[in-house]
Design a protein around this nucleic acid. Structure first.
Lengths: 217, 217
DNA sequence: ACTTGGTTTTGAACACGTTCAGAAAAGGAC
DNA sequence: GTCCTTTTCTGAACGTGTTCAAAACCAAGT
């Protein structure tokens, strides 16, 4: 058993390192096999697809995100601030892989792909990712309508997916534009959130939530 | 020249028909070449990439969208209704290619691809697509704050891109869920739009528009 | 008719992700 | 130690998108 785990680990480490250094396209299975001193077929014994190696990287990034967030939240209780921390921490965790991101994106975007964030193959990773935003909401002291509060973590995660999409296309130095967008959107969210409690906002808000609920079915 | 155009047309027609019948993955260049009675290399003389054949399909869908919208608008003056027409017409135009959509999507999504809808290489197609929503806005009689009105067509186009993304993943019969989402979102937009003129909404609205403008730079 | 220069077409070749039949290694059971 | 089963590993092979040197074709110009 130990030998098997060792081989598996050797493959993931080599693959992730190569993704980081060379990007997605230039990281070939043959290259990974060479660097890990195994055969091509052996890599496929452990990982049915190249995309499954990307999944491994994705899990690592997510773990990193969780660690950064746990540290970053500190004693902050304001939801907008916590959201900003969650978003910026996510971008921090992603940063080393910006060059490889386009390749990852087109690998992940196909619904048939193992790495599709919406697909059935990545339920666990997705729930782990949503947990970050669950923490952001739970640790806040803001007064939030309960129907909204229930759906908020998943909605914020989807917003984060949108931000990540923007980030892939963002070629500004250090992806500064993505960071600025994250901050500004968080601030805007903070100013708009109290309005959700105004009486005439309830109608549209409930319709919005119902629409999303139906779309998610 | 005539011969050349003929070959080119033969390739595009064969390719689009095959995308439609067999989907993206199962449409191979060798297959297209066979059906079009040419050699593999000759296809590459006209189209540098398989994705460029997808681009050809994309243009066709867009043309179809424009035709359907021009017919569909009729005498409707309400912006929400016009938006709904624009969105549903878009889904109608896309419908025949739902099976091929995942491949279509991953071909288009990569920023490095010449076919990316956000990239510099497809400015013209993008502007043609936005024009549909420009028409939707221009033909309406709703009172809209001018700062918003200026940005609205592009914003609606982005919303349409989001809808299209949802549609790719939508496996309900006839993609009914996507259609329902389009209708419901249009209706919600119609009820929220008047609120944009209320005094205390101006602040957040302007911040939102400024944020988007900065993000688009 | 013959050359010339450009356009169009061909098919073999390359590297890639992936598959697969079978070899090698690793444990037990006796 | 010897046999048997299961796990782990190998490398050749397949079909893919793409490239490229060379062939074939074509339209003038002389």
């Amino acid at each position: 058993m130990a030998k098997s785990d060792e081989t598996r680990a050797k493959i993931t480490e080599t693959a992730i390192a190569s993704f980081r250094e060379r990007g997605y396209d230039q990281t070939t299975i043959r290259l990974i096999a060479n660097e890990a001193n195994i055969s091509v077929g052996n890599a496929y014994y452990y990982f049915p697809t190249k995309n499954h190696l990307v999944q491994e990287l994705y899990l690592r990034v997510q773990d990193d995100h969780r660690l950064r967030v746990a540290e970053g939240f500190g004693t902050t209780k304001d939801l907008a601030k916590r959201l900003e921390i969650a978003l910026l921490s996510g971008l921090d965790a992603l940063a080393p892989y910006h060059d490889a991101a386009p390749g990852f994106l087109s690998a992940a975007i196909s619904p048939t792909s193992a790495v599709s964030p919406f697909g059935p193959d990545s339920v666990a990773p997705r729930e782990m990712a949503i947990e970050v935003f669950q923490m952001a909401v739970d640790g806040s002291t803001n007064a939030i309508p309960s129907e909204l509060k229930a759906q908020l973590p998943e909605l914020l995660w989807m917003a984060y997916m949108g931000l990540a999409l923007y980030w892939v296309y963002d070629n500004s130095a250090g992806q500064a534009k993505s960071r600025r967008l994250a901050s500004r959107a968080s601030g805007l969210f903070g100013t708009v959130l109290p309005l959700a409690r105004l009486p005439f906002a309830r109608g549209p808000l409930n319709e919005l939530l119902a629409m999303i609920a139906e779309a998610r079915s």
